[in-house]
Design a protein around this nucleic acid. Sequence first.
DNA 1: AAATTGTTTTAGGTATACCAAAAATAATAA
DNA 2: TTATTATTTTTGGTATACCTAAAACAATTT
Lengths: 218, 218
Amino acid sequence: MRQETIENYLKTIYNLSANNTMLVGNQKLSDKLGLRPATVTEGLRKLHDLKHVIYEKSYGTRLTASGAKLALSIVRRHRIWETYLTKELGFGWDEVHEIAEELEHIKNDKLINKLASILGNPIYDPHGDPIPDAKGKILKSNFIKLSETKVKNNYKVMGVTDHSSSFLKYLEKHRLIIGAFINIKTIEDFDNSIILSCQKKELSISAKAAECIIVEAV
Amino acid sequence: MRQETIENYLKTIYNLSANNTMLVGNQKLSDKLGLRPATVTEGLRKLHDLKHVIYEKSYGTRLTASGAKLALSIVRRHRIWETYLTKELGFGWDEVHEIAEELEHIKNDKLINKLASILGNPIYDPHGDPIPDAKGKILKSNFIKLSETKVKNNYKVMGVTDHSSSFLKYLEKHRLIIGAFINIKTIEDFDNSIILSCQKKELSISAKAAECIIVEAV
DNA sequence: AAATTGTTTTAGGTATACCAAAAATAATAA
DNA sequence: TTATTATTTTTGGTATACCTAAAACAATTT
Ligand SMILES: [Mn+2]
Ligand SMILES: [Mn+2]
Ligand SMILES: [Mn+2]
Ligand SMILES: [Mn+2]
């Protein structure tokens, strides 16, 4: 298996497993990796042989200790590069994910640690995701999704779970960026869309978009 | 053909063709690419079909205009990264080639041009190789190899053609670095080794090493 | 419990990147 | 010019990463 393929599998399994608490199914992996389910089945079998995952046939997959370690190191590289690109090289938060998707495979610890140190060893990336440290230690937050909030309460935007340029541009247009304070006005029974106020303006967020915004109660 | 494979072929053909003046043979490509001759034959046929090279069966290969353009852009990325790694990220000139070998495949013009601009659009990389500009224009120098110098003359070290860490460390140990002034004392008839003075010390350079050092008459 | 639906696996197949060994071709020496 | 040597190509083969379609299995509904 090509190293890059291994890394993409492990990173994706990590991202879908909610801190390694859940088994990850093939369908979701197939989606995220852009491969057909049959291909994923083969890939997982190989990763199992490599001892990077425990693959329970027909039920799902979880990372082993070695798999998790590798996954965390890819996640670290990805998020450090995203941060470096925005903070040091003038890229927007909506541009960096794609580039980091390639840069994350460059394997040189000295390089990543140097970038991290120039940035002051940041703990969050431009999308609010926590950055593992050089040892793989990562902050565990108890933030919630905007879709899980309650009417009348106040929240602060802490991150996003969709990194696509279109979604991030949409958020920026409505000033719904990291650090913004919001108040939930209404939640529509009909379609679960949310009406909230943010920077003195009211706006309506679809249930789908609300799934992708991470907030903290204030 | 994988994009990375294409890029490695084209870059290598460029580097072996002395500014596109010479046909490149399969044997040398096989060496540099770490592939067997039979594999190179296949690869070149495919690049020919892609119109990136003119492959004259049994005689050799040259880049087409489109191939040269692509090659120059890889060379630019490689050399800009090497320069950025040394100038901005604190790496030694003996460490950067391997990393650049990976980074050169990250395709994002805005990124490379940003790095170049931070560096002040440099014209030479840490090994003295000229860096093509964003349009592919590259300086053509008429420097010579140390092995082509004449006794008693004075020269300035301008570059190296071997980027291996061991060779560069060896040079550094003897202060034979870019910008150093040297005077040729003797050239041994027997083995073509060169005795020269550099920074007030005398040292003997093997014919093989002298092939890899680029100098300018002063 | 049976039927339906959704997910995963198997079986069989394509395309690509490589290789070793033998054959063909080109370059060089006699 | 012929023989010898070096280089390149052809042939036939392996390994890998992907795919589609069909079969098997698990989860959900009736
Ligand atoms: Mn990736
Ligand atoms: Mn991110
Ligand atoms: Mn290189
Ligand atoms: Mn260089």
